[in-house]
Nucleic acid binder design. Structure first.
Length: 306
DNA sequence: AATCTTTGCAACCGCAAGACA
DNA sequence: ATGTCTTGCGGTTGCAAAGAT
């Protein structure tokens, strides 16, 4: 026996809701409360499907819906949470008071994903140039002018080299300015080397695209996020969950270190915003790919940076 | 001014999980 | 244990508005 349809489709209104329908629905819910969506249209006198009523209420009529544009802070949080949770819009919306999953999903699809695609294209179009650079066919000095081309023998493979995100320009590279990069990590030791002349020489750009940066370990985060759903709402909690739920991070954390890492976690989200807001990134731009690696919250720094 | 194209968003649809009988 | 109901979720669609030609 098949499943009963949620409602009889015949004779029901579809499409955009009229002001009158909105009023009827609001009045009904104010009196009777939410729930029992299947029977609600009949009892309220609406020629709508119950699902449609529920959706209209949740996405538009609910009194706590926040109107207006997504703020920079909210956008930052969406990016951060999307990295953690993937397309789990309801979970993301749960951390953005007043925003609905539908709204966030739309915002992601119409704004954020497009911007990210643009960056993918930029990286893709520069891929060939980098290949030539890698082979020593093209080489440029730090000032950008072309110089004699010599095949460069690399003594050791280095994936992520001297690249600086705009927000970090002017900062000394050290463990305080590179989120998630601590003195004991391979990331930090690599930073200590002055290898500007080795920039991208052994960097396999295929291995590191913007989309990869944002999505690559989302699966692991995804799993851990499920374990963290009991945590409270808000940006800080998101950052905390991001840190404390890392797959291999079971050890107790000193509160001071914890706070520092929490701040780092927040910085990473801000870094993402600045990165996206900046001009298109060219391979020879000063871009701190190490920061991207740390943006992954990656305990796998050594996967990216040798 | 008219037409075509693109964009943004509200709404729809199918599916799945959990509750319940 | 099984079937049905209710609710919620995420992907997709359709349409109106805005922009381009």
């Amino acid at each position: 026996m098949g499943r009963r349809p949620c409602c009889a489709k015949e004779g029901l209104n579809r499409g955009a809701w009229s002001a009158r329908e909105d009023k009827i629905l609001m009045n009904y819910i104010q009196v009777h409360g939410e729930g029992k969506w299947r029977d609600l249209p009949q009892r309220a006198g609406l020629k709508r499907c119950g699902k449609s009523c529920r959706l209209r209420w949740l996405n538009y009529l609910r009194p706590d819906i926040k109107r207006g544009n997504i703020s920079a802070e909210e956008e930052e949080l969406i990016i951060r949470l999307h990295k953690l949770l993937g397309n789990r819009w309801s979970l993301i919306a749960g951390r953005l008071p007043g925003r609905t999953d539908n709204e966030i999903k739309n915002y992601w699809n119409t704004n954020l994903s497009k911007r990210l695609q643009e960056y993918d294209k930029v990286f893709d179009s520069n891929k060939q140039v980098n290949t030539l650079r890698t082979k020593g066919i093209i080489w440029e000095s730090n000032q950008g002018e072309k110089v004699d081309t010599h095949p460069v023998i690399r003594t050791k493979a280095v994936r992520c080299r001297k690249v600086i995100i705009p927000w970090q320009l002017g900062n000394q590279i050290n463990q305080n300015t590179v989120p998630g990069c601590y003195s004991e990590s391979p990331c930090f030791s690599a930073l200590q080397e002055d290898n500007s002349d080795g920039f991208l020489m052994d960097f396999h750009i295929d291995d590191l695209f913007i989309s990869d940066v944002l999505y690559s370990d989302s699966r692991q985060d995804h799993i851990k996020a499920n374990e963290c759903e009991s945590m409270g709402d808000g940006e800080v909690q998101a950052a905390k969950s991001n840190m404390s739920c890392r797959p291999d991070d079971d050890s107790p954390v000193d509160p001071l270190v914890y706070d520092a890492r929490l701040e780092d976690s927040m910085d990473e989200a801000r870094a993402a915003e600045n990165w996206r807001a900046s001009d298109p990134i060219l391979p020879n731009d000063d871009l701190e790919l190490k920061t991207f690696a740390s943006f992954l919250n990656s305990e796998h720094h050594d996967h990216w940076i040798s």
